[in-house]
Write a protein that binds this DNA or RNA. Structure first.
Lengths: 145, 145
DNA sequence: CTCAGTGCAAAGGATTTGCATGCCG
DNA sequence: CGGCATGCAAATCCTTTGCACTGAG
């Protein structure tokens, strides 16, 4: 078991910060890898046979630090997590302002390039060092319309 | 006193949801109006002679519901607030991933239109009703570089 | 053996809420 | 007067942390 490319990368990045790729962390990566949207801590725990929440929080923090996982903010009070973009694909989020649900979508490459160019020039102007952009559409999902 | 256009709009929107434009709420609007960036609750309280925090939270919630104020999420655990965009100007945020500070900036109109078009077509495709977009650049501010 | 990882339970901290008082309409 | 707004303090609830235990190397 293991040895999907995602597992390999996760293992390597963890190792590079002196951390192991344990069973619990594998479970987290698998849950996020299998989901098509960012997951809350509770959603992860439902998917992965009730891991203790403290371990989920702790390991998500470790995975985030290793650059395997990214924290996503929505409109509700729950933190959500997804795999880092270089393990998936650059994408954006539709965020429901009523229920907080988050759905992924992508944009054409030309649009991405244009946006990146504009953002970087704005950043430079303001003495900011850009890392990545965050482009979301806030509205209502089909359930909450 | 009062009767800046912003005050008028705020008063009207509050009235439309059956709420008053009280002194405390005026203070919040003034604080946000005077700032060039989104403010945390504590920052608001420093600016406006120590309003009680419960009132700040409660009134920001009311103002948000009235469409006068918008909640902004950063990379830290503090909620930040700014005036609604139609009371200011459409803009974006540079978010420092280290200290959580948020700085406003704008993009050329052509870019905005293009992005909106793309987002709306994606939203339609997914049964989502778009309201507004959120385009931020995450990186490091000059202090945290 | 050693030390990171785990899990439980308790603590932390931003935010919310209950309730008595005060003020605007 | 009547009801919304206020302010204090206490409660909430997501998240973090302390500590003893377990397991991999």
């Amino acid at each position: 078991m293991t040895d999907t490319p995602t597992h390999d990368v996760a293992a390597q990045r963890l190792r590079s910060i002196g951390q192991r790729f344990t069973r619990g962390r594998r479970a987290l990566v698998d849950a996020l890898d299998g989901a098509s949207n960012p997951l809350t801590v509770e959603q992860v725990r439902e998917l992965e046979s009730s891991l203790p929440q403290s371990s989920v929080y702790r390991n998500l923090a470790v995975l985030e630090e290793a650059g395997v996982v990214r924290r996503v903010s929505s409109s509700d009070e729950f933190a959500r997590f997804e795999l880092a973009e270089d393990l998936t694909e650059h994408h954006h989020h539709l965020i429901c302002s009523v229920c907080g649900s988050v759905v992924d979508f992508t944009l054409p490459d030309e649009v991405e390039s244009l946006v990146d160019g504009e953002l970087n020039s704005a950043a430079k102007r303001l003495g900011f060092t850009g890392d990545h952009h965050r482009l979301d559409l806030v509205g209502r999902c089909s359930d909450c319309s």
